[in-house]
Amino acid sequence: MPAPWIADDFFLRRTQRQLRPVGAGRSQAAATSDAANESPKIQANHEAAQDEFWHDHYHLESYYVSGRGYDQYRPAYELGWRAALQYPGDFASVVPVLEAQWQRDRGTSLLDWRQVSGAVKAAWERMRHAGPTVGLSHLQLLAMLQALQRLNLQTAKCLRLAVEQAPAGLLQQMLQRHIQAFEAASAELQHEFALPAHDRHGRRLSATLQRGWESVKALMGQPTMPRLMDASEDAERMLLVAYRGALRESLPEATRTVLQRQAMAVQRGIEALHWLRSCLPL
């Protein structure tokens, strides 16, 4: 169930910029050829940067399976970033080749192609779209952090509305803990980075959220446990998407540490909701 009212303009603008390929206006084949013809030293530096990035971010990706170490995914990322330099054209055209290659080059990874295809594609796309690393300006960094602060509060408000509809029990207790965690994350961002308060904006968001939730309730009819959990998971997944987008930026180390910790907490919350589905008769 989509939760469009917790999108944020900052992340929409950044996503559009990040998806613009390097050398826009030139053919993809030409860009790939240029990258493949770089000196071995430059290419090695590119690969080291890709390896470092995915080592820090693999556990935040949507295809990540909890409990799997980076060693299980690294061969897939390497296959993806190397293929982006080796093959022209789009990813779909070389999927059969890469699937066959995975069987030979998976090393000690226990994951099959279905489990790693998302990682291969993510590494392919990141290498194809990679440009010079440009850090955010101070104002851009503040805008990003304020966006995350707002999204945490919006998610908490969405879950609070779900709690009002949920029957007393484990789901209600879990959502209450999630609400407290998101409110604490928002407060931490505001305190840690000296973000200004947004009372008037917050009231507008609250009103928008209320209207959005009312429309969702009208669409889903009686608020059953599965539907409430769907809505709650959707809200938390939207927040996780925002964190993933932020962590793809070139950030100060202290900022990255805080955001990685908060993003992992959001992911654990989503996993907890999955666990609850398996334990309760819904």
Rank of each mutant, 00 (worst) to 15 (best):
M174Q: 15
M174F: 12
R68Q: 10
L273W: 02
L175H: 06
S27W: 08
T15G: 14
S206I: 01
A218E: 13
L195M: 14
E38R: 15
A147N: 07
P96E: 04
Y243I: 02
A143F: 10
L159F: 04
R26T: 08
N152K: 09
R20A: 13
S33H: 12
I179Q: 14
Q103F: 05
L141Q: 15
L205Y: 11
G118F: 08
M220R: 09
M229F: 01
A44L: 08
A29C: 07
L153Y: 13
Q28N: 06
N45H: 08
R200M: 10
D112N: 14
L239M: 07
Q262P: 01
H138R: 06
H201W: 15
L251W: 13
H198I: 03
G212F: 04
A231H: 11
G25V: 07
E233W: 05
G212H: 10
R244S: 04
G89H: 02
L273H: 09
H59M: 05
R244M: 03
E99L: 06
R14D: 10
G131S: 13
L145K: 01
Y243G: 02
E271D: 05
P196H: 05
H178C: 05
S109G: 12
L79P: 10
T32E: 11
D112E: 12
W54Y: 09
Q210M: 14
A197K: 08
R268V: 00
A218I: 12
P252C: 05
Q165A: 02
M174K: 15
W124L: 07
R106Q: 14
N152A: 09
H57S: 11
Q146S: 13
A3N: 10
